[in-house]
Simulated scan of single mutants.
Amino acid sequence: MIADLDADFAQSTVGQLVIANFESLGIEVSATWASPLGSMIKWRRKTCAEYNEALGYFVPIPEEIRREPFVFVYTTGVDFVEKVLDQTVDDDLARLGQHFPGMKVIYMIEGLHAFLGKVSATAQRAFASRVQEALGGSQRRRKEPAKAASSKESEVMARLGAQFDTSRALELVDDALLGLQVVHRCHIFHSTIPPDSAEWIAIMTQDMSIMPYRAARVDVNESICMEAGQIKAGADHRGTFQNTLQQLKFFSPAMANSVVNEFKTIDKMMLALGSGGPDRLLRICSNRGRGIGKTLARNLHFAFTSKDPHALLQ
């Protein structure tokens, strides 16, 4: 993978952490790009193999660099709220649509929940102060001073307090987030601090790097999940044979154990099914004295002998 970072974003605290994480993962970094919004990342992929659907596996091709269909936008919670107040969120999305048509936009907003919590706490303190003043000086209680907010946070808080009440301000932010997801189809990630943001960006890039291989392993026309770990393997050949049999519907562990005791290996069972057909299984009884019925015998025979990959068991 090749990550193209905005030149200014690469010089920021988060950008430096992102570059360090990328280098530790072997991801190439290019920081010469001037993005339309700033604090953006786009990705490219070095491709030397391509999945051939007809053959069912990856075939080598001359190496080429392809653009990934994702573009990433990083912003802080304070900056996002400021854009909501300025009503420029939709303008930013329009610019992204012009520069990156057809690409999926990923938004990461750092510290939004913490900032909105400060806004609510400030409003509550102001309300409590007004109530105490109305009750008279004797009812006032001395409190510890609140932690000083940054100049940017104080400015945005002042704008929120001047234009809206707290509940209305929070509704505006929620509406903006919903608009990003519902109207513009953006993916939104929330982070807390710069190291957390950089870690999630690295995880996102790793997931992105294996997407073609995941897609090749999952056939959407089938109801079978091909991810590793879906079926437990046995400790030996016998255990694997028994677990394989139990994947058949209504095939209990006791029945599977009886079949394994009868044939020992899959190869011997295949020879018996080839010569005796489904009726060969009717003579097998489980440890509880229950035999394998005709439907289960037919399904087991069909599952192991059919050559039709699209056939379904009855």
Results as ranks from 00 to 15, higher is better:
Met1Thr: 13
Ile2Phe: 04
Asp4Ile: 14
Asp8Phe: 06
Gly15Met: 01
Ile19Ser: 02
Ile19Tyr: 03
Glu23Thr: 12
Ile27Val: 14
Ser30Val: 10
Gly38Asn: 01
Met40Trp: 01
Met40Ala: 07
Ile41Trp: 03
Lys42Leu: 01
Thr47Trp: 00
Thr47Tyr: 01
Gly56Ser: 11
Pro62Met: 01
Glu63Ala: 12
Glu68Asp: 07
Pro69Ser: 12
Thr75Val: 06
Thr76Lys: 02
Thr76Leu: 00
Gly77Thr: 04
Val78Ala: 02
Asp91Lys: 11
Asp92Glu: 04
Gly97Ile: 06
Gln98His: 06
Gln98Tyr: 00
Phe100Asp: 00
Met103Thr: 07
Val105Asp: 01
Ile109Cys: 00
His113Gln: 14
Ala114Ile: 05
Phe115Gln: 05
Ser120Trp: 06
Arg140Gly: 00
Arg142Thr: 08
Ala146Pro: 10
Ala146Ser: 14
Lys147His: 09
Ala148Glu: 15
Ala149Pro: 13
Glu153Cys: 02
Glu153Met: 08
Phe164Ala: 03
Thr166His: 11
Thr166Lys: 11
Ser167Arg: 13
Arg168Asp: 06
Leu177Ser: 04
Gly179Thr: 06
Val183Leu: 11
His190Phe: 15
Pro195Ile: 01
Ala198Gly: 01
Ile201Leu: 05
Ile201Val: 12
Ala202Gln: 05
Ala202Tyr: 03
Asp207Met: 10
Met211Glu: 12
Pro212Gly: 11
Pro212Lys: 13
Ala215Val: 03
Cys225Lys: 04
Ala228Cys: 12
Ala233Ile: 08
Gly239Phe: 12
Phe241Gln: 14
Gln247Tyr: 02
Met255Leu: 14
Ala256Asn: 13
Asn257His: 13
Val259Phe: 09
Asn261Tyr: 03
Lys264Trp: 10
Gly274Pro: 08
Gly277Thr: 09
Gly277Tyr: 08
Gly289Ile: 08
Thr295Ala: 14
Asn299His: 10
Phe302Gly: 02
Ser306Lys: 04
Lys307Gly: 04
Ala311Arg: 11
Gln314Met: 13
